[in-house]
Amino acid sequence: MSAVQTTSPVRQDDTRRRSPAAEVLSSLMRSGTFLTGLAIVLFWVACALFGEHFAPYDPLADDIINALSPPSAEHWFGTDQIGRDVFSRVIVGSRDILTVAPLATLLATIAGTALGLLTGYFRGIVDDVVSRILEAFMAIPVVIVALLAIVALGTSKTTVIIVIGLSFAPIIARTVRSAVLAERELDYVAAAQLRHESAFHTMFVEILPNVIPPILVETTVRLGYAIFAVATLSFMGFGIQPPSPDWGLSISSNYGMIGGGFWWTVLFDALAIASLVIGVNLAADGVHGAFND
């Protein structure tokens, strides 16, 4: 772990007093894009954590007599086809997507980082073969992979996490690999090899701390796509399952009546997904900018 604290040889000519991490942080705090995105994301995280306490109704409680009533003073966003309060459901509906999408992104980051380190460090035939397979795999849409996995393994949050995690891993691996290719030419890697450090040590203790910035950037970008994918799979009925008030799932169970003019049963969920996806992407854009200034 000590390698994390010691500055690598590349940064020794750096005359600035502050550490690179503090530099990035202060740049982030000055980025309007990042702060806007962060505010949106934190709002939904707060809703996921404490939503139940300020939601006016129980998001799962039905009330058939008041089904499909339009937005009013009692029900700000109206009620759905079995009379559940849409406002309460939208607030609490962030919970599942904000659990599944980050876990999928985490899995993708861990698997992708390991693959990227291996292919970038060893190069040669292993790299050629693995990289080709990963590139080919990247061309297959997540929805198709998900359809196959769900038919074979059944629907569950775990399946969704594994499908999205494994689908995104090659993309992170590609980013890590190209960063590793540049790092492994540097003197500190040669020094570690001369000390007869194991390949494992060189990859994970020497190189990994120095490729953290591109990994962080790629992870935040992937989180946006993971939310996209989780919402889509839930809408298709292959993701989060009823009675969860999840947004994609709510849209999927209510959009059939859209022709009847019951717009409030789907509009607010759609806007919630849109705001979360845009928020994460704004934040990711800010992170990207902070590391590449």
Partner: peptide, 23 residues
């Protein structure tokens, strides 16, 4: 362009259906 690209198709689809089909 960037903000519509990051949105899931079914979300833009629902909003477009509401605007051009329902309203």
């Amino acid at each position: 362009g960037l903000s519509v690209t990051v949105l899931p198709e079914f979300v833009t689809g629902i909003i477009l259906i509401l605007i051009f089909g329902v309203w």
